[in-house]
Amino acid sequence: MIRAVLVMNTQGKPRLAKFYEFLPVEKQQEIIRNVFAVLCSRPEHVSNFVDAESFFGPDARLVYKHFATLYFVFIFDGSENELAMLDLIQVFVETLDKCFRNVCELDVVFNYSKMHTILDEIIFGGQVLETSSTEVMKAVEEISKLEAASSAINLVPKSVSSWRSR
């Protein structure tokens, strides 16, 4: 299963961090730092696998991909196929690209909850549920609609009721 998904920029600033098993925040930050230390020491055009046992316990592997200013990192165990994980990163990034039209780091920075919505549609509790970016997009769009609707309903009555209670 997938243990964690991290997105960080080339300066080591985390942009998205999702851990599929509970870890105290200090430990999370430590892992992010360790992962970055490993990634930034690797040259371009080398293999995308890193042994993650040293910072994520036994049997942990890490796959990363470098896009522009961002590293996309998946940490997983022996129940996943390395190349499939690499493809999954591709799926994730493709979906982001569809969602934000030429995704860049700023999109990732400012769309914290949307990023999670997308990721949640692909990976559920550490298991891969959906690998087609079109399917993911469909679900994400529906969720966004629902969200917009609920806050639109929300906005008017709430302000009205607040004024009224004066």
Binding site: V25, Q29, Y112, S113, E147, S151, N154
Partner: peptide
Amino acid sequence: SAIHGVDMSWASFHVVEVMSSSLFSHKRI
């Protein structure tokens, strides 16, 4: 908490409150 490692265990009751909202956007948060 997720990005900068801030502790949020103190807010767990508020989390429950927000979860119980009937609005999808709040519930989601």
